[in-house]
């Protein structure tokens, strides 16, 4: 089995472990970005888990901050903190709150959770990196529902105006938000055309849960003259059948111990 796929299974198990231990959490949108996180951290990002504040490191800003459990799983896999932390998600005094917090978790580069804001922060980070000439790439993960925030488009316009080609945005297009499918709540199509109209390069990835396709998208995005948006068509809850089958209800779900073990069994069966 491919090493990346093996890590993806481990990361998915660790997402289920965190949320299952606490009992409830943002499962769907954590599981949908697993391949993206694994490919970024394993194949692309420059970082040092011993020096999480290392200057000139590549940065990841998870603007859809509720996917914290997915980010914690990959950070743990990369050695930023020990595995026992994963059992503390949302517990009193935890270093792993449900939404990403740069002041609590080593390896988290921006505090996010109020949707739309992380992207603006990333634009500032990309400008700062350019001013320092440190050659860092600034990666941002946006939710599809998050694109309904007006601030997203302020940031998109300004990043293109500044030709921030060190800035790469991923859209986790799992087509589900809290109240329904994106098109039912407030449609965001035509999405690729929107980003192009805002001055961005766009690459669309048909299977955003394929490590190979995600890697192709990142490789393309790192070599554009303008900022690049990578639209990842993903599946909310990917990899755990009962979460996938919950559709839009998987945004935040109760995960019983029984269901957590069911998820472990399903994921283990793929190794």
């Amino acid at each position: 089995m491919d090493e990346l796929e093996r890590i993806c299974i481990q990361v998915r198990k660790d997402i289920m472990l965190q949320i299952g231990t606490f009992g409830v959490g943002h499962v769907g949108g954590s599981l949908s970005i697993v391949e993206l996180l694994v490919v970024l951290y394993r194949l692309h990002m420059r970082f040092d888990p011993q020096k999480p504040e290392m200057s000139g490191r590549d940065r990841l800003i998870v603007s859809k901050g509720h996917s914290g459990p997915a980010v914690y799983a990959i950070l743990c896999n990369e050695g930023f903190f020990s595995r026992d932390w994963l059992l503390t998600l949302n517990q009193p005094d935890t270093n792993l709150p449900s939404h990403c917090d740069m002041n609590k978790t080593p390896g988290i580069d921006m505090t996010t959770g109020s949707l739309g804001q992380g992207f603006s922060c990333a634009v500032g980070v990309a400008l700062a990196s350019r001013l320092c000439s440190d050659g860092a790439y600034i990666y941002v993960i946006l939710g599809d529902g998050e694109l309904q925030e007006g601030q997203i488009w302020e940031s998109a316009m300004f990043a293109a105006h500044e030709f921030l080609n060190n800035l790469i945005v991923f859209i986790d297009y799992n087509d589900a938000q809290i109240d329904g499918r994106i098109g039912q709540v407030c449609g965001i199509e035509p999405l690729a055309e929107k980003w192009r109209a805002f001055g961005w390069e766009v690459v669309e990835i048909g299977d955003g849960n394929s490590c190979r396709e995600v890697n192709d998208g990142i490789t393309f995005a790192k070599n554009t003259k303008r900022p690049c948006a990578v639209i990842l068509h993903t599946i909310k809850g990917k990899g755990v059948s009962f979460v996938e089958n919950s559709g839009v209800l998987s945004h935040s779900m109760v995960i019983s111990k029984e269901n957590m073990n069911l998820a472990f069994m399903e994921l283990d069966s793929r190794i």
Partner: peptide
């Protein structure tokens, strides 16, 4: 920098700069 008429973005861009030590 001038972000244009986009105050929300201005605040976020500033936060990003600050995270870099500016």
């Amino acid at each position: 920098f001038n972000v244009g008429v986009a105050e929300q973005n201005m605040a976020g861009v500033a936060a990003g700069f600050s995270s870099y030590g500016f």
